[in-house]
């Protein structure tokens, strides 16, 4: 399994957030955050052209 490095203060904040949110540990919390971000970016890839089209048609600002 790959390992990643986090700044100490970010790790501590992630630990506290994971505890408050009820994660089993900081690793589960970080994995969940990364999953969510990947999903969001994939959504943005497709929502970008949709937004451009809707803006061109005058349906969004």
């Amino acid at each position: 399994m790959a390992k990643i490095k986090l700044d100490d203060s970010l790790y501590e904040r992630a630990q506290r957030a994971a505890q408050i949110a009820g994660y089993s540990g900081v690793e589960e919390f970080v994995a969940h955050c990364v999953e969510n971000e990947i999903k969001r970016l994939k959504t943005d890839e497709t929502e970008g052209p949709v937004a451009d089209q809707l803006r061109g048609l005058g349906y969004i600002e």
Binding site: G48, V50, Q53, G56, L57
Partner: peptide
């Protein structure tokens, strides 16, 4: 219909091979 409207409005028309999958994904999500 959207492409006709975009042209009438003087707006850019996205290539169909880009916009169609984007709309399909949008609707699925």
């Amino acid at each position: 219909s959207q492409e006709k409207m975009l042209r009438r409005l003087g707006q850019a028309v996205a290539p169909r091979e880009v916009i169609r999958p984007a709309f399909e994904s949008h609707l699925q999500n």
